[in-house]
């Protein structure tokens, strides 16, 4: 069972199954330039055939891609109503699309994908979901979820982090959990506490 980590450092077994596209769906590097493996925001996460063909486990709690939820809603509606279908958003997909397609009050879980560690779009997506769209339910970070960025993710409003299966041992996760409080008073406001340091504490006056 893959493990997830929570803001207070608890480590739990993941009780949801993430339904992913096959790895071959990764965009191909371009011939020129220093190409990165990334789709730009607004591009489709997967072609429709792939979405149509993607197998979903017949029972249990599943997190399906947004495009799949949009295309195959009827097939999943009953399980959704039973609280067994969550939805995940690719980094190239816009939060606005998610908000239009999913009832935020009813969905039992949302997840945002970090296709690679250096792709920071999901931080903004999380912040928007929490602050602009008022989503209060579980919000998972999935994909390239690396321990050195756990704090950033929690600060942006994620409450559950799912590193790639096998990336960390339980001991390594426990060590990462023990370091979550390293930066006690961050300078800027974020989702976890919107107040910047200068509103959070009384800072001593400075002298020249």
């Amino acid at each position: 069972m893959p493990e997830v980590i929570r803001p207070d450092g608890r480590i739990e077994e993941a009780d949801w199954t993430l339904v992913r596209y096959p790895a071959s769906n990764d965009p191909k590097p371009k011939a020129t330039g220093k190409a990165g493996l990334a789709r730009n925001t607004g591009e489709a996460a997967a072609p429709p055939e792939l979405v149509a063909a993607l197998p979903v486990p017949p029972s249990g709690r599943v997190i399906v891609p947004l495009a799949l939820w949009q295309a195959r809603r009827e097939e999943l509606q009953r399980r959704f109503d039973a609280g067994e279908v969550g939805v995940w958003l690719d980094a190239c997909e816009e939060v606005e699309t998610l908000v239009a397609a999913v009832d935020l009050a009813a969905v039992p879980l949302l997840a945002l994908d970090f296709p690679k560690a250096g792709d920071g779009r999901a931080y903004s997506s999380a912040a928007l979901l929490r602050r602009r769209y008022g989503y209060r339910g579980p919000l998972w970070a999935v994909g390239d979820v690396l321990r050195d960025y756990f704090v950033f993710m929690f600060r942006c409003g994620f409450d559950t982090l799912l590193p790639r299966p096998g990336r960390y041992t339980h001991a390594q996760l426990a060590e990462a959990a023990s370091q979550l409080g390293l930066f006690k008073q961050p300078y800027q406001g974020a989702v976890d506490d919107p107040r910047p340091l200068f509103r959070r504490v009384q800072r001593a006056p400075l002298h020249a």
Binding site: G118, Y123, S124, Y149, F152, C156, Y187, Q188, A190
Partner: peptide, 13 residues
Amino acid sequence: RQWSSLHPEFAHL
């Protein structure tokens, strides 16, 4: 400087 230091949302531009 303070605001941008380890800003969580803009950590990976």
